[in-house]
Design a protein around this nucleic acid. Structure first.
Lengths: 343, 343
DNA sequence: TGCCCAGATGATAGCGCTCCCACCTGCTGG
DNA sequence: CCAGCAGGTGGGAGCGCTATCATCTGGGCA
């Protein structure tokens, strides 16, 4: 039993073990497993057989240390249970897996610059080859500039540093679809419950809504601000329900829309007979509440795939600037909207 | 410019750089940074100053390769957008962070044994020190037995291998709370829309429901099976709504409950006047739909923390068997349940 | 006074892999 | 007929860190 030919039990087999069994050098094993072209088919087969026989598994840490490449991308998201986060992450995971990359997620409890920096640093420490920032960049610090300069990064809410690439859903279009739908139903004007202003999606939706009203020469009512939670929708709904003029509301997310509708019910305003409501996201439950919710569907899965694709291209050639990509939302008409009743 | 004293620009500073600047050995730097006790306070301060000055960041890959320890735990979850997944992951992330561990997530698209194996192998490749399986183990393969033997593992739905530790919410209690609540309201019996039978939570809830009915000498109606989706709730609701006897339904998840209520509405059965409905989970929207949903709240965050705590203990001493831990759900009474009307 | 031990530090040897370069075939073409 | 070249392979040198052992100091105690 020479320790150079037999490893102690308990230690997983390494590349040299595979090499010995296959009767080649460790170097050739490495090449065969990496899919390098200059390896004879016969040799590769021998290597694969040895791998199979020994139950060899690559040692990722060693690979990363040696090559600097990790085959991993990082995603920064907000630590919440909102549907949008889950759906998007889901989309990214799928797409990354297809591209042969692993996904490492770093969540941040707040949108503070320092919290986002910390999340990005955590990912950097894991040697991710690229990052997707799925949180709004409120303030771009020197540190963030530096990080996005060093690691190819894609932001998905439209905010960006000088070095990031951008992927976004056309949120302005989402708002315009919703607003125009309500005007088409004959409503005089449309009220709006927005998301937090720090979020670019929220302000894009707000702008789109305002643009349509102005283009049509309608009165632009004051905007109410929520925080994406059902509870904030409820609070704003209690306000809207007390204003007799309100007949149509565009709410910046389905979860808030549920809260708005709930509040209107409690105040005796019927949906859609008295007030029409449109949400955004098309969460799974939108169809199953009463009344079922008219909403603007967000192509989250598609967006995840787009972000990953964009990131891959950016990683392949960090020099070339890619043009911002964007996908289009679509209106889903259900029962929470109805024609305005004429006075 | 000797290359031994000055590194090429562009390469991040390493421990030897820090050591040189601090005027100590690399070894001492390692100890100081690891919080090793046998380091003079003065020395530690010098090291920290040098770290600060150079912007040194540890190289994780090297640390893992060298020590075998990664300070990371892995979580296997199903690739869905269900609330429960997000909420639980969230809880685990928090708890792990507090324990000084990073979390790596591997999602699986299906519950096939091979898919779960693949997810676990991915985590093993990342040198996780422990795993939390947040998916039901339908069939425990040799491979899974082996993996759970090699890496400390906690399962959180009650299924287990010979080597795993178990953490669970008492799902039977959840069902009993819901069922008894409905009986207390005067209903003759309670119908049940369950989750997929492969999920232990689903069958535990089913058992709890059945146990209460039998203990009270009530008729046990046939069970309807859903797949956790709102749509499956809707389908089953269309069936239940056509059965005149039905006055109370216990649905195994809130999302399905939304579907059930929706279907009952469409069939002209009012909730709660004609039929009372109870869900499980207490999702954020449960309170804001109409009628607001009576449900059994699951302590997801607590469960995540419990799972992490359990795992830490298991990792510290893989030999000692820990007794299964469990947390208790609680009933939240809202508007979807009402006293039975007497014939 | 001398010895031992504990605390503080340094030197050296890998961890398992990939990179770079050298090597060896067997073939083409002047 | 042999230089020259390309495809296939092997041999070393690290990647940046930690484990292990060795070294060196300064007490406390007989």
């Amino acid at each position: 039993m020479d320790k150079h030919t037999t490893r102690e039990a308990g230690r997983p087999p390494g590349m040299t073990d595979v090499a010995r069994v296959a009767g080649v050098s460790a170097q050739t094993v490495s090449r065969a497993l990496a899919g390098h072209p200059n390896v004879q088919e016969k040799t590769r087969a021998k290597v694969l057989a040895a791998v199979e026989q020994l139950g060899y598994r690559k040692n990722n840490a060693a690979r990363v240390l040696s090559s600097g490449r990790s085959r991993t991308i990082g995603v920064v998201t907000l630590q919440t249970s909102f549907y949008s986060r889950t759906a998007l992450t889901h989309g990214i995971e799928r797409a990354a897996q297809e591209a042969g990359y692993a996904v490492s997620t770093a969540t941040t409890a707040s949108l503070d610059t320092s919290a986002i920096e910390a999340a990005m640093l955590r990912l950097a420490d894991q040697h991710v080859e690229g990052m997707i920032l799925a949180v709004p960049l409120i303030h771009v610090s020197r540190q963030i500039e530096q990080l996005t300069g060093a690691v190819p990064t894609v932001t998905i809410d439209g905010s960006r540093t000088s070095a990031t690439e951008v992927v976004a859903v056309d949120q302005s279009l989402a708002a315009r679809l919703a607003t125009r739908h309500l005007l088409d139903l004959g409503h005089e004007t449309v009220w709006h419950v927005s998301g937090p202003r720090a979020w670019l999606d929220a302000s894009s939706r707000s702008q789109g809504w305002r643009a349509v009203l102005e283009a049509e020469g309608r009165v632009v009512p004051p905007e109410l601000e929520g925080d994406w939670s059902p509870e904030s929708g409820y609070r704003n709904g209690l306000i809207l329900g007390r204003i007799p003029d309100v007949t149509a509301v565009f709410v910046a997310s389905d979860e808030m829309a549920f809260g708005v509708i709930r509040a209107l019910h409690e105040l005796g305003r019927r949906v859609p007979e008295d007030i029409s409501v449109v949400g955004v996201d098309d969460i799974a439950l939108a169809e199953y509440c009463s009344p079922s919710l008219t909403t603007v569907a967000q192509p989250f899965a598609e967006m995840g795939a787009l972000a990953v694709g964009h990131l891959m291209r950016h990683m392949a050639d960090p020099g070339a600037a890619l043009e911002p990509a964007s996908v289009e939302p679509s209106l889903v008409v259900r029962a929470s909207t109805a024609p305005a009743r004429r006075a």
